[in-house]
Amino acid sequence: MNRLLKSREVLLALAILALLAVIATRFPAFIAPGNLTNVFNDTAPLIILALGQMIVILTKCIDLSVAATLALCGMVAAMLDGAGVPLALILPAALVLGAALGAVNGLLVWKVDIPPIVVTLGTMTIYRGIIFLISDGRWINAHQMTAGFKDLPRTEVLGLHVMSWIALAVIGGAYVLLNRTALGRSFFAVGGNPHAAVYTGIDVGRMQAVAFVLSGALAGLTGYLWVARYAVAYVDVAGGFELDVVAACVIGGVAIAGGAGSVAGAVLGALFLGVIKNALPVVGISPFWQLAISGSAIIIAVAFNARQGRARGRIILKSAEHRA
């Protein structure tokens, strides 16, 4: 299952293609290459965060603080820019701050043994609150940002925005990490059977902390990209985005109980939501529908996951074995 796409991913890819085909019958412009790259670019933050979230979920945890981490790192990046710090330092700073915020989650889960959902529900509000404290609740608008700061994500290289290239790099990195490194495989082991992981010399808590750090670092990176691309930073940036991120993972077939999931699944789950979000205004449906649609998608996906994962119980009768 590691290198071969399981039917799950193929199904999801087909669903996205079908969706595109349906939209194309009425609005052919939607599937023009230029527009599709726009859709991808627009979905890039969701893809990046979904990959981080997937690693966290693999280890049997959940990170509800990603959007708040994103917003806080974005605000700090914008403030650093305002203070005249060069972009070459802002980018690593956002990354490191994100990793540090993730480490706070991770340490609380690892060292203090608090359930991840409680930790990240708490840090989600704390991080948002900190944005208010450091910004005094004020917005940082486009005219307060330097051109270089705003332009980087939008710079076009070989027909794609830098934002998209970063997402592609994160996808590639996640693939190598999760499929080709001992660390990556340990995430699966920790979530799949924490008890056994201990016996193979893997420290479950430490792996969970590492997952949170990775998720936080990716959220920090995305924080800069987000604030620079939309050229605004304020307390409620990406409010509620953590739900989209979890939704992308669930739709992508990442098992919420941990131990199962794939990079392709998470990316396709994010793209599925991205296509819907971008298609709504095109087909003339109010964007207010989006929340309800992604909510329904989560429920349908989790119901689907459960059907697929339902244990093919031990079959005792020989005759039944043949039928099965």
């Binding site: 739900l243 669930v250 207010f288 529908w289 929340l291 909510g295 998608a297 429920i299 119901a303």
Partner: peptide, 23 residues
């Protein structure tokens, strides 16, 4: 009835219910 994990289901209905209000 369907045996789905409550945390994911209610994250889903959390979006769905408020989403209907927004619609």
């Amino acid at each position: 009835r369907l045996g789905l994990p409550s945390i994911v289901v209610t994250i889903g209905t959390m979006s769905l219910f408020r989403g209907i209000s927004y619609i």
